[in-house]
Amino acid sequence: MALGPHAVFVVTSYALATAVVLVLIGWIAVDYRRQKARLRELEAGGVTRRSGRGVADI
């Protein structure tokens, strides 16, 4: 697959798109872990929801 004289632009756009999507995925995954850890911490400290359901139910 030859990309011709403007290969830099094609490669840069694909690389940038990959990078942005990966950052989005990473951010969402890290955020998920952080919120779960905080919920667990709070429950370990004895704070529970009115329904009594904990983080294990999710």
Binding site: I25, I28, D31, Y32, Q35, K36, L39, L42, V47, R49
Partner: peptide, 30 residues
């Protein structure tokens, strides 16, 4: 599809964030 997947996952994070927030409020008021 990528958007739908990311959106659902981000919504899940947001729900958890609000639970954390309300539990923290309960903890503080207690």
């Amino acid at each position: 599809l990528l958007f739908v997947t990311l959106h659902l996952a981000a919504m899940r994070n947001e729900i958890l964030r609000r639970r954390v927030r309300s539990l923290q409020m309960m903890q503080a008021s207690r």
